[in-house]
Design a protein around this nucleic acid. Structure first.
Length: 282
DNA sequence: AACCCCGGCAACCGCATGACC
DNA sequence: AGGTCATGCGGTTGCCGGGGT
């Protein structure tokens, strides 16, 4: 009955990963691809449990991860998304493909939460909140990264693989993602309320659409948004599941989706410019 | 110089969900 | 159909380094 156990508790190493362990894990995943974590400790000889291997990979070794130095744009996105989604770090991370949920969670707990708490008494409206972000992000512009150099070394090992990675264009990624998400939303909703007009009923029932007023309160149905983002994450991780037929349709974007797309477009342009700087080419 | 405190981050733990047998 | 386990996620903890005294 059931699957065999994931890993024996005996002889499982805990604590920080060594560069050697990282290299073993990366080499194995480069060869076999991520997934089937249960077999990773066995096949690599790593004294780690499958859970630890997966976590190490997704939070630290996975190619395409940007670490430290959150940009003002990213900070703003996190603040907005946290307001909308709550502590759904995985959902928030799905909007920031270069960041991990753990990284975002840590950044929120160590930086943003404090800043927001500090200013909470002063800040009451949404527009005031926007002003807060500006000041908050200004403070982090000079933040120095403290990540271990070993990580960068591991990243170098992955350089070739990263080039082959299809997720190099964040804007395209988000556009695709938002289209898929919206389509899924419409489909979900249509399944629930097949007799309603999809667009109108969704927006009336689940979210207040953006009307250009900064003071507009934005409500996204928490369950729906969570389910939506989660399902999308699953699609990402599975590497398939994108229905091409659905991509042909162009349903209207909700406020947050429009906002994210606009923010990402401008943000990515800024980030790409900064990446051209020699200091970032290392 | 030594000690203490605090902030930041990596990793672990526990729970929920879904897949497998 | 139901039990067992893998996987994913959010919360929490422990360690390490830097700053202050």
């Amino acid at each position: 009955m059931g699957r065999p156990p994931c890993c024996e508790k005996i002889g499982i190493k805990k604590g920080p990963w060594t560069p050697e362990e990282d290299i073993i894990l990366v080499s194995y995943i480069q060869e076999h691809g991520p997934g089937n974590w249960r077999s990773v400790p066995t096949n690599t000889g790593l004294p780690r449990c499958s859970k630890s291997c997966r976590l190490r990979w997704t939070n630290y070794l996975r190619p395409g991860i940007k670490r430290g130095n959150f940009t003002p744009h990213e900070e703003g996105m996190i603040i907005h998304l946290q307001t909308l989604l709550g502590n759904k770090w995985a959902s928030i991370a799905s909007y920031l493909p270069q960041r991990t949920d753990n990284d975002i969670k840590n950044y929120w707990n160590t930086h943003l939460k404090k800043k927001l708490n500090k200013s909470e008494s002063e800040e009451r409206s949404f527009s005031e909140n926007m002003a807060l972000q500006t000041s908050a992000t200004r403070n982090t512009t000079n933040h120095k990264s403290t990540y271990a150099s070993s990580t960068e070394n591991i990243s170098c090992l992955l350089e070739g693989w990263m080039r082959a990675s299809p997720e190099s264009n964040t804007v395209n990624f988000l556009e695709e993602k938002l289209q898929n998400q919206t389509t899924n939303l419409m489909n979900d909703h249509h399944n629930q309320f097949p007799c309603e007009h999809v667009q109108g009923s969704w927006e009336e029932g689940h979210s207040q659409t953006f009307n250009g007023d900064d003071d507009q309160v934005i409500n996204v149905h928490p369950k729906e948004s969570e389910k939506n983002v989660k399902s999308d994450r699953d699609v990402q991780e599975d590497g398939d599941g994108v229905d091409d037929d659905h991509n042909n349709a162009s349903p209207p974007l909700t406020f947050i989706e429009k906002w994210l797309l606009e923010e990402t477009s401008t943000g990515v342009q800024m980030e790409e410019m900064s990446l051209m700087e020699p200091s970032n080419m290392l």
